[in-house]
């Protein structure tokens, strides 16, 4: 075991799970429309789309956001960032600051409402050309960006 692998991971901002739940609700809308259409067309008894929708809602709005939130985390040290994610398929990525080409902080409208942001690290590698860390408080993302930026001496070749 190496020190890096035993360091406790920092949890993401709790609003991130709320954002994922809202995204789950949005994903339900087309399913809801399909269910209503089936009910109106009276092709099948009402409980068939009803139960399917209830299961989809449980998975998309409650189960998956919870699992995702729990599986994600990060650890920042003085020369590298470690990003862990994945419910079924785990990925544990480490990017040394000295290899960061440039940095982005992104927010979509939903994320802006909850004051969270995504920090994106771009590297020159073909694999993991950009590593995304979502669900950071916006201020925190900016602070991290500045800290990492201080390590990036030049932005490109």
């Amino acid at each position: 075991m190496h020190l890096m692998d035993t360091e406790p991971l920092t949890k993401l901002d709790p609003s991130y799970s709320t954002v994922m739940r809202i995204e789950g609700v949005l994903a339900l809308i087309p399913l809801l429309i399909a269910g209503i259409a089936l009910y109106v067309a009276a092709e099948v008894p009402a409980w068939v789309p009803g139960i399917a929708l209830a299961i989809a809602a449980l998975v998309l709005v409650f189960y998956l956001p919870m699992k995702r939130y729990r599986s994600r985390g990060y650890h920042i040290s003085d020369d590298r960032l470690r990003v862990v994610k994945g419910v079924m398929f785990h990925a544990d990525t480490v990017v040394p600051f000295s290899r960061v080409q440039h940095l982005d902080v992104e927010q979509n409208p939903l994320e802006r409402m909850f004051g969270i942001a995504r920090l994106i690290l771009h590297t020159a590698g073909t694999h993991n050309a950009s590593v995304t860390l979502p669900g950071l408080a916006h201020d925190n993302a900016i602070t991290m960006r500045e800290a990492i930026r201080a390590h990036v001496k030049r932005e490109s070749l």
Binding site: H90, D92, V95, T123, A124, G125, H127, N128, V131
Partner: peptide, 25 residues
Amino acid sequence: LHSVEIAQGPLARRRGYCTLRFGLA
């Protein structure tokens, strides 16, 4: 090298192995 990733699928997690990927330009 530019980054290092350890990836595991469901089976790999149960059986204790993984894929190690390096970011190479």
